[in-house]
Write a protein that binds this DNA or RNA. Sequence first.
DNA 1: GATCTGGATGTTATCGCGAACATCATAACT
DNA 2: AGTTATGATGTTCGCGATAACATCCAGATC
Lengths: 341, 341
Amino acid sequence: MSNTDHRPLTLRDVSEASGVSEMTVSRVLRNRGDVSDATREKVLASAKELGYVPNKIAGALASSRVNLVAVIIPSMSNMVFPEVMTGISQVLEETDLQPVVGLTDYTREKEEKVLYEMLSWRPSGVIIAGLEHSDAAKAMLRASGIPVVEIMDVDGTPVDSVVGISHRRAGEKMAKAILKGGYQRIGFMGTTMPRDHRARKRFEGFTEVLAKAGVEIAEREFYSGGSALVKGREMTQALLARDPDLDFLYYSNDMIGAGGLMWLLEHGYDIPNQIGLAGFNGLNLLKGLPRELATMDACRLEIGRRAAEIIANRVKDDADQSPVRIALEPTISYGDTLRRP
Amino acid sequence: MSNTDHRPLTLRDVSEASGVSEMTVSRVLRNRGDVSDATREKVLASAKELGYVPNKIAGALASSRVNLVAVIIPSMSNMVFPEVMTGISQVLEETDLQPVVGLTDYTREKEEKVLYEMLSWRPSGVIIAGLEHSDAAKAMLRASGIPVVEIMDVDGTPVDSVVGISHRRAGEKMAKAILKGGYQRIGFMGTTMPRDHRARKRFEGFTEVLAKAGVEIAEREFYSGGSALVKGREMTQALLARDPDLDFLYYSNDMIGAGGLMWLLEHGYDIPNQIGLAGFNGLNLLKGLPRELATMDACRLEIGRRAAEIIANRVKDDADQSPVRIALEPTISYGDTLRRP
DNA sequence: GATCTGGATGTTATCGCGAACATCATAACT
DNA sequence: AGTTATGATGTTCGCGATAACATCCAGATC
């Protein structure tokens, strides 16, 4: 039953235990080729008894097939990527592919390192967040010769395929909705964005639409680190202290938006009339707040699913290898904090 | 610069490009053995120019060394495991080990499948959540011959090493604090717990202490799925409708606790005097609510760190391989919702 | 009965790399 | 000068599996 001496088990052990060749054992364990029922059962019994687990390293080397898909994302602790992962998993679960996650912590250096590390395992495909990568990273992606899908953002030039939303457009759309709601004096709060390209693009789209309507951002505030809920409170208070006449607050994510919302409610603001709010991301987590925050869905689940589908399709033998570009449409949700036109 | 024909690059390509043997290239790329500075630079230049990425599959097979640590956890989307992962990453980052995550979705079948899949890559160690596994899974873990650390929970018999808190004790501790606070009529809300062994253990410890003090849980309510914040509201309302005289509500996690807290505040309850609340987990995410929820820290970061340290130590050549058992002490945090004694 | 067919099995070569050992020069001793 | 260290490199073999081909045998076909 158990492997008492400490030599690792190999196909040979199973083959000896069941009295057939290694090749036949291999065929049984992979369900490939013709094997009689009798031998199959004999082999499976031996394998189970020994507790044999095939060595994919050797298998992958011999077959040059690896059922791994590298997924490279900034972080798992900010609500947005777990949902993307869910989408990816949902789709890959129906194939024999398996996602393997690498985290970049929002830095290019780490992205490069992680990518190198993952490519050295020769995965069948890469799903990677964002369109901004170091030249070296782009070169690696191209040289790898495997399908690459860049996700989240479509505003830029992909290496290969891309699935996402236009964050620029998301910002524009929210700006239009706010203007239509009749708001005029707008404050913005978000992360300091040296590396958050998507937040920057939203901000650019946002300000541009306002500018066209002759409106300028009246006040702004940035943060990094700490509890987003607390930061949302603090920044909201600071902003309103500086300019009590603000009638709208646009937050670059839902968590700080929620913090702001709570602060405003505690201080008796009339929402959405005296002041309106909106965030970004459509965090399901926050359903259940006293008021529902206006937000914009970033199509996270769908992005994950589509990206995985592209990889899954391309891995097939006779597949069309041409790049795909999918731009999903972010949808606005007015909630209780944004006056409808 | 780029690999135009479609043959994958190997050490041989780099060796030919730089005019040295494959072995020397290998040594350069791994920083092992003596290589003259001149050759080193020559090799690195060629490798970079070709865009060569070493094949770890072949490397691992040849050296029977794999720098991967399998981390098997139920889910990434419930706040508790991301922080454990952070702890693991922090520690492994200082070694050459790399975590690879597999998700079980709280089912034994999937756990078994994921474990099999991961072991087939011959990782250097396994970190796996919980002490409850199928017999087959336990057998695999034992037969693997690699260090195994079971995490989160210490109430049970580990396969090898274990790092966690006693959830039973966590429940007991909270019960004592509640009793000392003078609460008498206690309601409980949590997940339906067919598979949530840790929540069950907390509940058992909790009720036992109450029982000794002659107190019984007055009302209880269970949920599964959906937005935890909303569920917390709904269950709280339901519970208080059934028994308006409850003076304490114990929630099996902070999210439903936060939902309950908001509902109570909106309905004008006097907290913590008319009614007290407590959750479980010490979610940093929730800092910034109108009141700070009483909770108990599950030492998630520390658990991750300790588990990773055990693996990292054991991987060393001459390491002590004896099992380790670390029981961390959960600490109570009274917040604003639990009367102090 | 001879030939053919195809299912069931075995044999050999190879995947790309690293461990272990071998080789060769140069420097450092006695 | 002769021996010994040490650094820098190369050679051989094997890791554990799979691809591709080879073999064998029972039944079908003529």
